[in-house]
Design a protein around this nucleic acid. Structure first.
Length: 414
RNA sequence: GUAAGAAUAACUCAGUUGGUUAGAGUAUUAGUUUGUGGAUUUAAGAGUCAUGGGUUCGAAUCCCAUUUUUUGCCCCA
């Protein structure tokens, strides 16, 4: 800590940005509720094992990006790098298999020790949805539809495309992985250094390489669709059929793979070209074996997470602070009366702030700058008559209004 | 973790081949006594030129290190 500034990759969020982020979360909650999803809050940190096991030791998140620490009791803890693992742990801890299916949403900060860039921070914020206990492909359709509706409500539909792929079930995935390894082993000498490493850790990721040389090799690589067994391709067909039925546009991207080891079957990403390399705005997939891997029952799951910062940057929510009524008491006695009046007006759901310092000119100036709708002036004259001076800051019109009628006088007129 | 840029007032940015007291716009405050805003105008405050070293008679300017940030890669929301 050299100066009084936020630690690398963290920041203070306020003003328009904070409003936009709040709007994203509100839209998310509102839409999710119409799909029958309910809030589910999990801790911000867990035992390290909770993330290590499902994500896979070789994944970058586990090997270099986790905020892991030992607490005073000597426990190994980790700040959550994502939500899914924690929710699955909670599902087991709370014995929720009694109440399947579970439709759960969560939102809040997550942490990854990465190189910061715009739209990529060490503390970032996600919205998250998980649907547990539904093995059928219709569940995938449901949860993608929900994501699409949220993005539409945020008016992002024309800035974002849905990319879709299947990784198949365990068997198909293993077969594909083997086919890829065989193929890339044959091109070892021309693969990039990164991809040689990936050949060991996560061969599927080579498909996603940005390296030009790799891309040429990848072009000739075997396709997932050729390795799918009957059940897996039937599953994927159903998902596509469902999306077609409700008119959600998507692009089948054979090269789409995901970082986490736990995905099976459907994988999808909502992508924009407007955020540079941070174009993935919301992404997820199916993770049928995950809960079992954590030591729970065999329960299917499908879900996604969206980056709130990234969504907020794209969405023009147009959210502005509500215009306030500013109450301006002149003198000691008026201050007390102003408290009472302010409370009365707020009880009617109107935004009221008080400005008690400076001469009237200054206060009106400030009120105007803050885009207030009305000024309510209370001085000695008003106290004795029981009526306040109400001044519209839009047209300057001024009227005397009895204290009891102020809320009505100021309501609705914006 | 890796490569290349950037850092000057609250904000956006000028600042010549290294030369005296580092500028502008926006914003802020004030232009007077406790009761009337928005425009114009006048004035003022505001900067350890990111931090620490070095070169030089002299550094915002050149060199090195550190910190933060931006754009790629890695990876991901």
């Amino acid at each position: 800590m050299s100066k009084l500034q936020p630690a690398r990759g963290t920041r203070d969020i306020y003003g328009e940005e904070a409003r936009n982020m709040a709007a994203v979360v509100e839209t998310f909650q509102k839409v999710a509720a119409t799909y029958g999803f309910e809030p589910f809050n999990i801790p911000i940190f867990e035992f390290t094992e909770v993330f290590k096991r499902p994500l896979g030791d070789a994944s970058d998140i586990v090997s270099k990006e986790m905020y892991t620490f030992e607490d005073r009791g000597g426990e190994e803890l980790t700040l959550r790098p994502e939500f899914t693992a924690g929710i699955c742990r909670a599902f087991i801890s709370e014995g929720l298999q009694q109440s399947l299916p579970c439709r759960l949403i969560a939102h809040g900060p997550a942490f990854r020790y990465e190189r910061p860039q715009k739209g990529r921070y060490r503390q970032f914020h996600q919205i998250d949805a998980e649907l547990l206990g539904q093995e059928n492909p219709e569940a995938d359709v449901d949860i993608i539809a929900m994501a699409w509706r949220i993005l539409s409500e945020l008016r992002l539909a024309d800035k974002i495309v849905l990319e879709l792929n299947t990784l198949g079930d365990q068997e198909s995935r293993a077969a594909y992985r083997a086919a890829l390894v065989t193929y890339f082993e044959g091109h070892k000498e021309s693969l990039s250094e990164d991809s040689l490493r990936r050949l060991e850790s996560n061969p599927l990721r080579i498909l996603d390489s940005k390296d030009e040389g790799d891309k040429r090799i990848v072009a000739g690589a075997p396709l997932m669709s050729d390795c799918l067994n009957g059940a897996s391709s039937a599953f994927f067909a159903k998902v596509k059929e469902g999306l077609d039925a409700i008119g959600i546009p998507y692009k089948h991207n054979e090269r789409l793979v995901r970082g986490m080891d736990y995905y099976t079957h459907t994988a999808f990403e909502f992508v924009t070209t407007q955020l540079g390399a941070q174009g993935t705005v919301l992404a997820g997939g199916r993770y049928d074996g995950l809960i079992q891997k954590l030591g729970g029952p065999a329960v299917a799951g499908v879900g996604w997470a969206g980056g709130i910062e990234r969504l907020a940057m794209l969405a023009e929510t147009g959210k502005v602070p509500a215009r306030a009524v500013v109450i301006m008491p002149m003198g000691e006695e008026a201050v007390l009366e102003a408290h009472k009046i302010a409370e009365d007006i707020r009880a009617a759901g109107i935004v009221v702030t008080a400005d008690r310092s400076g001469n009237l000119k200054k206060r009106l100036n400030r009120a105007n700058k803050n885009n207030a709708s009305f000024a309510i002036i209370i001085g000695d004259d008003e106290l004795s008559s029981g009526t306040a001076t109400v001044k519209s800051l839009d047209d300057g019109e001024q009227t005397q209004v009895p204290f009891a009628e102020l809320a009505a006088a100021v309501a609705g007129k914006k």
